[in-house]
Design a protein around this nucleic acid. Sequence first.
DNA 1: CTAGAATCGGGATGGTCATCCCGCTTGTTC
DNA 2: GAACAAGCGGGATGACCATCCCGATTCTAG
Lengths: 184, 184
Amino acid sequence: MTDERALRADARRNRARVLEVAAEVFATEGLSVPVHEIARRAGVGTGTVSRHFPTKEDLLTAIMSSRLVKLTEEADEIARREAPGTAFFALFTALVREGASDCGLAELAGTDRRLDALGERAGADLCGRLQSLLAAAQQAGDVRADVGYLDVRALMSACMSRREDPLEPILGVVIDGLRGGTSG
Amino acid sequence: MTDERALRADARRNRARVLEVAAEVFATEGLSVPVHEIARRAGVGTGTVSRHFPTKEDLLTAIMSSRLVKLTEEADEIARREAPGTAFFALFTALVREGASDCGLAELAGTDRRLDALGERAGADLCGRLQSLLAAAQQAGDVRADVGYLDVRALMSACMSRREDPLEPILGVVIDGLRGGTSG
DNA sequence: CTAGAATCGGGATGGTCATCCCGCTTGTTC
DNA sequence: GAACAAGCGGGATGACCATCCCGATTCTAG
């Protein structure tokens, strides 16, 4: 933040361009795209990428964490405004839509530990919100009591994997199912 | 089959041992385990593995296809005996349980194309049965009409990913959800 | 415009893996 | 039990990547 001033103008430009290209590439082609390829498309050398982001993970964190923070704020906003059940399903749906439109995020959300570990706390914060809202929704009887957080994560990931295909059917199935047959 | 006689006795033994070890290893640790490691655990050289199975994919096919054939027969059996809706959910559940107890199979089922492409037809046959039963169940009004085969695959994969954890909750969610709220 | 530091590019390095190859060993046959 | 083919082991090869490094370049201060 404060040392952004310390970067030479061209360096700052390159850094921004790498971030932009990487976000685009990860979103459309997933996380397995080589760093080399990102550098190529950004029109810089691989050295430039790895100086700004020593590790691929660092690059990923730089891209995702602001996004996760935003989603976390959104989650808090929803939690404040809505009843527990409504809030949980609203967050679930929002996360699914976010992941469905971003291949990289969906991959991240797919393997449990990966998302939670991202950034200093960004990933863990967001996951915590989902977990809290789940608990609250179950408390309120709006979500079946027997499902666990990891069940929800697995179902979320399944929905995300449908990508740009119509999400309504699978979201419908999962949300109905989570509500349980009894509360109608 | 017929050329099994043509193998020298020790070669046949080695081949069997490799198959056995690979099945175990893939099941418990997933498909990313190096061939090298399978050879090591089987107590043979890597050359021995790749002579019997020139490609890792060949090894995988040898392990899985008999299993897939058995599941396909089971599917036919179920389809013959049960009403469409019952049959579909029974197959779905059976596949989930199978995948949940075998990390490798779950991985295979996770990426759409991978399972269908396995073996000469083994994978495609099984997938075809699932697809047919889905259609029949939808025809009979036992499964929501708006879900597609790929939605079912995604949900199946999500259930499998819960591994040895209790499957009832997530299976309950998915099956209830697939039935839809209307048909009671 | 010039010196000097910050950056750059992309080749070098090191690690992981599947697959191939070949000199050596072992089973099989007569 | 000898000869020979079948099979063995594991090192060699080649692909693919992330990450590191350093001589060459470009920015910026003065």
